[in-house]
Computed example of a mutant assay.
Amino acid sequence: MSTPYCCTDCPRHCGVVRSETYTPDVPMPGYCHTSLQPVVARAALHFWEEPCISGSRGSGAVFFTSCNLRCCFCQNAVISTTGSAGIPITVARLRRIYGELISQGAHNINLVTPTPYTQAILESLEAPLPVPVVYNCGGYESTETIDRLAGKIQIYLPDFKYCDASLSQRYSGAADYPDVAARAILRMYDQVGPYELDDQGILQKGVVIRHLILPGCLDNTKAVIDWVRNHFDDGQVLFSLMRQYVPCGQAADYPEINRPLTDAEYDEAEQYLFDSGIEDGFVQEKDSASSDFIPSFHGEGVLPESH
């Protein structure tokens, strides 16, 4: 009989014995409320990442159900928080999905909110892929898990949502987020090193740090920009300042963020970024703040064609 797996894959260290397989409508223990078996809501070419990720052919995005962070404003709340979408699959099927996306021309395999399924992902990447693998996460990661991913992940795409612990506790239930995310990002960089682009400008390895500006939280955004500037030199990491916030998930329960970002807020944040001297990265256009860019989660690309 195998030893039960007591989960400590993320910084919450629930220590619960997670079910090996997913059973619909059966409550799962732990913060992420899911099984070790991967549950995937969408697997398709994705064109809305940073240009160096999506390129001209798209990123092979695999959207996993559940999340270890569960932010109240998440635009993917239907899969990250409610768990109302997603199809349980085997590790072998997950590996075949990678191959199908690569055959469609994907520049990379983009694992979106993968942390709850660390075990399955490690198994699925036992043999190297012919394209880079992107670990697209909320930044709330344990350094131990990052160490286990060494050699499997070429590109880390973490958020750095908060430098303000009061905000991270209020909106994500994680007062330790600023310290945890900072340690995680530094470990990611130590593992993969400075970013590298190919001749077409497609990222082959490195770290892209994302930050979503929240309404009324400009001091937090400026602190994140300062942290990046103080910890990395030019040519080491890419920084993506995101203005795509629209009230989603449970944002209506938090009146102070239940509104779009104003032009004045974004202009101030963008100017602060430019003044910081950070040049390696991206900013977003105003029309990115639209629910039109939220993908549907109806199982596209998850089941074999015979289904």
Rank of each mutant, 00 (worst) to 15 (best):
H307E: 15
R229W: 04
R96A: 07
T113A: 14
L149V: 00
Y140P: 00
D280M: 01
P38C: 12
L238T: 08
I89F: 10
Y135W: 15
H211R: 08
K286M: 03
A106V: 12
M188P: 03
D287K: 09
P194I: 02
A174Q: 04
I102W: 07
I257V: 04
F293S: 04
C74N: 01
K152S: 08
M242Y: 03
F297D: 11
H211C: 12
F239E: 02
V224S: 10
G299Y: 13
H33A: 15
E123F: 01
A61T: 15
Y22V: 00
Q104D: 07
E123Y: 04
H107Y: 08
Y5N: 06
I79Y: 09
I109F: 05
I87Y: 13
Q200T: 12
A44V: 11
V134M: 11
D226E: 14
T8F: 07
G281K: 05
A181V: 04
E265M: 06
F297H: 10
R70T: 13
A41F: 09
P38K: 10
G299M: 14
T113R: 00
Y266D: 05
R259P: 01
I79V: 14
I53S: 01
P88R: 03
S168T: 06
L129S: 07
Q37V: 11
P178V: 10
L203I: 14
R243G: 07
S84A: 14
P29R: 01
T23P: 00
